[in-house]
Design a protein around this nucleic acid. Sequence first.
DNA 1: GCCCTATTGTGAGCGTAGCGTACAATTGGC
DNA 2: GCCAATTGTACGCTACGCTCACAATAGGGC
Lengths: 158, 158
Amino acid sequence: MRKEVVESAASNVVPPVDLSDVGEIRDILGFHIRLAYVTVYRHFMETFSDLDLTQKQVSVLWLVSDNPGVAQTDLAQRLHMDRATTMGIINRLEGRGLLRRGPSPQDRRRKTLYLTPAGEEVLKRAKAAIWEHENWLKSRFTKREVQTLMGLLDRIHT
Amino acid sequence: MRKEVVESAASNVVPPVDLSDVGEIRDILGFHIRLAYVTVYRHFMETFSDLDLTQKQVSVLWLVSDNPGVAQTDLAQRLHMDRATTMGIINRLEGRGLLRRGPSPQDRRRKTLYLTPAGEEVLKRAKAAIWEHENWLKSRFTKREVQTLMGLLDRIHT
DNA sequence: GCCCTATTGTGAGCGTAGCGTACAATTGGC
DNA sequence: GCCAATTGTACGCTACGCTCACAATAGGGC
């Protein structure tokens, strides 16, 4: 099924004998992803210091706004979150009056989510901040490179 | 569900007039980085469930092993971490007996870090696990794509 | 030599977020 | 109508990021 793409310093066909030698930490793709994520996250937090929202919180607001009435489980799935984790985020946002839970007409186990007017307002401002943040992030790439990068990243999380 | 499918055609030349409209959340590069990171992190934790180490902890062990006697501040800088955050990680690793702090000959404010034999042993096993993890991650890319991806990610955190 | 500032490690406290586990209510297949 | 699966919820634990504060030390200017 999966191609065996063995890495750089090791030979191309035969797995390395000493498994403990993975080469330099600089050759570890996961390491680079983490560093990039941390950098982006940090700048995001700076940009959003006045709105006091995290990436995940904005993601949730955005998705709920685009899909009013969505259930928590669907939300969790789309954002790759645990159900329990989703709970915490929803609780916080609800506590701040940015969204509300309502009953679901079809399934009484489910709760439907929708933004309050305050939530919509905050999201609107958040999007403006994101525009700024994205410009900062994308400024180091050409449009083509952004497409390439997104395409490659997509292959990881899908 | 209203969906404005702007797709990749979004704002090719002119910045959008309405700053609050950043398009689909799918067009946000930061969003993709976060999803990719979460996916990688999750798989990492699965791979390391028996060793009970996080990405950061392995990174610290690795860097200390490669640079014995390094100071905490230098470590923090290389891993893009806060000094206080670094403290916590070092404390945990020291508490588990994987590394130790020693005095610095030149600067009495500094502490030098070095792995214990147990730490070296754990790192050795961690590297084997990383080899597995990296194969899983890189299996979806060609060698060339891995290089491209790393190059693009590097531009973010440097 | 002596001050002033910067650096380094440390601690306490707060917030976000991930996970496992357990449980009640509800649904849906059989 | 019963049983397994789903959904939301709560609780506890851990990791980790931040701020702020403080003590010890270092280094530059005088």
